[in-house]
Each structure stands twice: as structure tokens, then as C-alpha cells.
Amino acid sequence: MIADPQQHGVEQRKALLYCMMRIRCVEETIAARYADQKMRCPTHLCTGQEGVSAGVGCALRSDDFAVSGHRAHGHYLGKGGDLRAMLAEIHGKVTGCCRGKGGSMHLVDRSVGFVGSTAIVGGTIPIGVGLGLSIQLRGTDQVSCVFFGEGATEEGVFYEAVNFAVLRNLPVLFVCENNLYSVYSPLAVRQPEGRSLCGIAGEMGMRAERGYGNDVLEVYAKAQQAILSIREGTGPVFLEFATYRHREHCGPNLDDDLGYQPEDERQLWLGRDPISRFQRSLLVAKTITDRDLDAMAVALQRDVDEAFEFAEASSFPEPTDAYEGVYA
């Protein structure tokens, strides 16, 4: 299904585009500067997957909770996480969101409900469910959103967490980004042919839907609908979005020379870029002009460059800070 671009207001569509372009600008600037050796931690870029981050992020309220995994830049920014604190964290600075303790794979901004992302596949899925339990105990109408990749559905803890969320009718939105690869391992070596993740989630007792992750309006619409029903108390929802990562699993480079992604598949997905396709549809609908797009790109790059300057100019933590904060 291709969502109707007229379905949402002009401002909403511009906000979704802005959110995607901002994430892309951050990721591509990291890629361009990574060789400077100032960002000294493993970094998993989400270029190509911005549709899910923007669509779900814009559908959540800032008091809703979100948790994520190792490829979390987009989820953090989509949820409203502070850009300067994220870049400072990747640079290992004391102004970073974890004061340099976490790096790219550990992002947090409690002020906007981004409770944390961690580096173990599937590790935050039960944590998102536990946040859902706390919401139920407190009796608020918040939602807990868990971002993970299709690889995490191969972990036992996914099933444990889903089972409990369904058992207790918890307000949890499970968002599975299916980008077909776990590092270099394709789905075919990890899951049997014809496996339906939605089928499994549905059989476990959740409403489950599959969507096209590179259509930001479709993601936004499905997320909005799911969040509404979760707030009404109808229990957890599972959304699976098909998407594709453009760059290597970890690092700034393209890795098409390795040949693990079939070239025709790669070209097909590069042609389905979530940002270009949305820009085209907005141009055709005359919601936006080429000049608007140019101006947005310039303004975004300026903001991102400014955030990099902040990160680079910030101080490193003191070496003795390493031994602080073991206990609360």
C-alpha cells in the first residue's frame, strides 16, 4: 500500500520530511567526518532507514517511552533526542548524553522519553515491556515503544517479552525494522523461507501488521493507529516495516564491494530511498518546491555542523571520571 500523500496536513508532511532529512544529514555528516578519528567508537548508521524513525517518532508523544538497540541514532533523533548531546557522546565528550560512558550505541534523553539504547541484540525488548508494566501500574496513558531489528526476533528474549506483554495487556508498541541483514548474514541463513514475523506475533496474541518502512506516511499512519489503540487499553501491537540499510553494518563506508547484498537487490532498494521518494511526491503535489528543499538542506547542514562544532569544542571528561558512577 502506498499511503495517500494528501492524507495528512501540509505541516505534518513537512515535519516528517524534515525529520527524515535531519537524520540523513546527521548520518552522512558522521560518515564524511569519521575518518578524522575524532569519533572513536563503533557507529551503526541508519542511512536508508529514516522512514521508520521519523514515522514512528513523530507519532509518539514526548512523554511516551522509547528504547532501542545498536542502530539507534534515528530512533533517538526521531523521538526528539538532543542532537548536540548525541554528537558529543560519539566524540567521547563530557557534554555527551552519557558523559562519555556510552558512545554511539548507548543513547539516552530522558527529557523526551528516550530511556536508552543498548548494544546487545534484543536486550532492550524486555526493558520496553517493563516500562509498559510501570505505565500500567501507574495508570497513565503513555505508550512504551521498542525499536529492534528482525535479527532480534531470533533471540529467545523477544518471545519472553512479547508473551508477558500480551499476558498482562501492556501498553507496548513493538517496532521491528526488517532490513534483511544481521551484519553480513542474510535472512535466508537465519530464518526459514516464508517465515512471517507478523504471523508469529499475531499467533502470540497481538495485533500485528506489516508495512513498507520506506513510505514515511504509511509508517506514520500505522504507528498513529497502533498508538491510539494502545492508549485505549487494547494491549500491545507489533509493527514490522520493510526497509534497507545503505551503508555497512558498522562504520561510515559503503560495503557493496563485499558482495553480500545481491547487486540487483541493492539497486532496487537504493531506488526506494525513503527521502527521495517522499520529496518527489511532495513536489508533484506542489506541497513543496525545489527551492524549499534546497533551503531545508542548507539549514539542516548548518545546524548539524554547529552541533559538530559543539561536540568538538567540548571538553573530554577527566580520566578519574571513569571510576565514578558504578553505583547509584
Binding site: 517511552f65 528504547v67 530511556v115 536508552g116 536486550g123 532492550t124 525488548i125 524486555p126 526493558i127 520496553g128 515491556v129 517493563g130 516500562l131 509498559g132 508494566l133 510501570s134 505505565i135 501500574l137 501507574r138 512504551s144 529467545g156 528474549v157 518471545y159 519472553e160 517479552a161 508473551n163 508477558f164
Partner: peptide, 12 residues
């Protein structure tokens, strides 16, 4: 899973 649930609840 239920240890993770405890962690998530504790974070709130």
C-alpha cells in the same frame, strides 16, 4: 525476559 521487565519497570 522477566529480569529485563524488572529493569524496565525500575527505570520508571
Amino acid at each position: 525476559g522477566m529480569t529485563g521487565v524488572a529493569i524496565g519497570a525500575a527505570l520508571n
